[in-house]
Amino acid sequence: MSAPSRPLQDRRAPYIMLAPFALIFLVFVAWPLFQSITLSTQRTFGPGTTKFVGLENFIDLAGDPMFWIALKNTVIFTLGSVLIQLPLSLLLAMALNRPNLKGRALFRLIFFCPVLVGMVFVAMMFSLLLQRGSGGVLNRMADQVLESLFLYDLAGAIFKDPWLTSANIINFPWLEKYAMWALIVAALWMFVGYNMVYFLAALQNVRKDLLEAATVDGANAFHRFRHVTLPAIRPVASFVVLLSIIGSFQLFELPFFMFGGPGYENRGLTVVMYLYQSGFETGDLGYASAIGWILALILMAFALLQFILARRDEGTLE
């Protein structure tokens, strides 16, 4: 047994090692977390003056149209991120995972780079790239591509009054009307390589012998993916989906700088932007905390769901 070695271990050592983290955590993380509960039952005018209002903040939130707009926008962005970004990430990872692929490290490096750029800086770039009219780089490039593929001519030949025209593409109002799509595009550029790295690591768990056996048995590419690859990467995939949902729900800097605030008709308003506005522009830290708690509860529900699904998966594997 390890009995003789135990006394050698200094009993105080683990506490001393844990102490710096634990002390700072208690004062600057746990205490604010606890305080956020109290704050959410208060109406505040800056940090100085507070008034107890009970659950009024939450009741007000339920009837606050701005909050619902923010929540709707955030859900749209999250769906866009998960449904568009993650399949693309997986596709890139599978392409990079081909044996004998040359330049794998370089491709991985290039795809990963955008995530190093902070949200603020990505917003600075994309607010220029996605402008409408002659200033919009993306629109002008799209226009040239569509023109060279004769798609305008095709649309003109099929429809009497085609929407797909050069003028419409050049003036496509990303930052005005299609705010959430603009964000999805910017986030796609930023995060596709980041998620790819997770999938690439997960693909190392796929057993090559099973894939080969399936090929010998005549399974096509889709069946091999569905029955061999997918089950093997599933734990990581569900983790990546969860991370993606958590990150998407906390979207703030990207719209804040791309639209300079909530944008045209509040189409760029997100939950955390509304939290920021309530707490630090209006000065109601209590209302901001209430919004924070709604956000936290939504994300906890997703985490719980992922946990339950992961448990169930483990059960079916036995």
Binding site: L33, W293, L299
Partner: peptide, 13 residues
């Protein structure tokens, strides 16, 4: 699983 924005207002306080 605690989202950072939740701590923003109480940390400021």
């Amino acid at each position: 699983i605690v989202p950072a924005p939740l701590l923003l207002a109480p940390t400021y306080q």
